[in-house]
Amino acid sequence: MIRMMIVDDAQSIRNRICRLAADPRLPELDIVGSARNGATAVRIFRDTRPQLVTMDLTMPEMDGVECTAELCAIDPAVAILVVSALTDKFTAIRALENGARGFLEKPFTDDELVCALIEVMK
């Protein structure tokens, strides 16, 4: 079972990703935590050590790029999928340079999220 954490300031997105994590095309995922900002995500990450993280970028307290860099510093093997509405190339490159393995644009379809999760877990 793969440990997963969801980071997004929108409850509707956290709930949706949680539901989609049960998709039969995915390996069995155990949602060990969810956070609405980067600072909380770092605390949960230290306690639960998820192997897979979905990461929003625009969040209060600590944004997703900074949080991605911190999580990768703690565990370089973590697979982080950025899920963000910020669709400019500069932002995507910055997220990848800070350790994200993939970038999925919001708004996303159910299939797009499932496929993106499969890709970052390879």
Binding site: A85, L86, D88, F90, T91, E105, K106
Partner: peptide, 13 residues
């Protein structure tokens, strides 16, 4: 948030 964020594809960072 999504509509404004998506606009950065056009307007840039």
């Amino acid at each position: 948030n999504t509509l404004a964020g998506n606009a950065r594809r056009h307007f840039g960072p």
